[in-house]
Amino acid sequence: MLLEISAFLVLEKLILVAIILGISLFIAMYSTYAERKLAAFIQDRRGPNRAGIFGILQPLADGGKLFFKEEIIPEYANKFLFILGPAIFMITACMTSAVIPWGSTLHIFGKDISLQVADVNIGILYIFGVVSLGVYGIMVGGWASNNKYSLLGTIRAASQIISYELAMGLSLIALLMITGSLSLKDIVEQQSHGVWYIVYQPIGFLIFLVCAFAECNRTPFDLAECDSELVMGFHTEYSSMKLGFYLFAEYINMFISSAVMVTLYFGGYNFPGMHSLHVSPNTLTILGVIAFFVKIFIFLFFFIWVRWTVPRFRYDQLMKLGWKMLIPLAILNLLITGALMLYLHH
C-alpha cells in the first residue's frame, strides 16, 4: 500500500512544494521591505522610497547587492563548516513549511488535492525537531568563523534557544492535552467547528508567543546578533550571499512561526462564519487560504512592531525570564488545564 505512490501524487506534491517555497521566499523578501518601512514610520521617517514607486523594488536591490558583494572567507576559518552553517540555517528554515496546512482541500480534475505537503501525524514534533536543528546552523557558522564575537553570539544563541524551547514545549503540551492530536491538520479541523484555541489557552499562547520571539532571534531577544555589543553576533564574519542566507532565513523563520501560531491558536485557515457561507467548496478553500495569510500578516506586523518598540533584554534578564518565569508559568498552565479537563469530564 505504502509503495503505491502514483506519479500524479508525486507531481501534485512537487507543484505544491514549489508554490509554498516560492510563497515563503517571496513573503520573506517583502518582510524585509515591510520591516524597513515600518521601522521608518515608527521613527517618523519615510523609509526606502527610491527603487520603484514607494521603494517597492527595494528587496530586489538588496538581494542584488548581496549577490554581487565580494565573498570573503576568513583565513583561519574552517572553510567547510563556514559554508555549511548558512546552508543548514536556510534549509531548516524552509523545511518547516512542509507540515503546515495552508488550506483545506481543492477539487481539481476530479481529485481532492490537499493544500498541505505532508499530513504527518506528528506534525508539531516535526516542526520542533526541525526548528531545533536550525540552531546548529548558528552554532556551526559561529564556531567556524574563528572570531570571538561570533563565538559569544553563538553561545548566547544556543543557550537562549535551548532555554526557550523548554517553555515553548511545555506551553504546547497543555494545548495538546485539549486537542488530543499532534497532527496540525486535525488541530485546525477541530477549530473549524468549535472556538479557536486561543480562548482555551490564553496563557499558553502568551508563553508560546514570547518563546517564538526568542526562537526567531528577534528583538527583545536578539542577543545572538546584538549589533551594539557583538558587532553582528554569529554572522560577524559572513559576507555576500552567505550573510544574505542568514538574514533571509530569519525572515522565513518569522513567517513560519507566524503560520504555526495561527494554525495552533487562531484557527488556521478557518474564519468566522465560514459554515454559513453558501459558496462552492473550492471557493471556500481559497477564502480560507486568504484568511490564513491575513492572519499571518497580522502576526508578521506584530513581530516587526515589537522589534521597533522594545529594547533588548540583558543576558541575565533573558535567562531569568526563561527559567524563573516562563517555565513555572507553563507548568502551572499545564496543571490548571489538566485539572479543569478532569473537572469538566466528571
Binding site: 514610520f41 521613527q43 517618523d44 521617517r45 512592531w305 515589537v306 521597533w308 518598540t309 522594545v310
Partner: peptide, 27 residues
C-alpha cells in the same frame, strides 16, 4: 513591573501612534 507586559503594551501604544504621525524627513 516584573511581568514586563504592561510596560510593553504601553510602549506598543506609543509606537503605534508614531506610525501615523507626520514624517519629519524631507525628500
Amino acid at each position: 513591573e516584573k511581568i514586563y507586559l504592561p510596560a510593553v503594551i504601553k510602549g506598543l501604544g506609543i509606537t503605534l501612534k508614531h506610525l501615523f504621525k507626520k514624517k519629519a524627513t524631507y525628500n
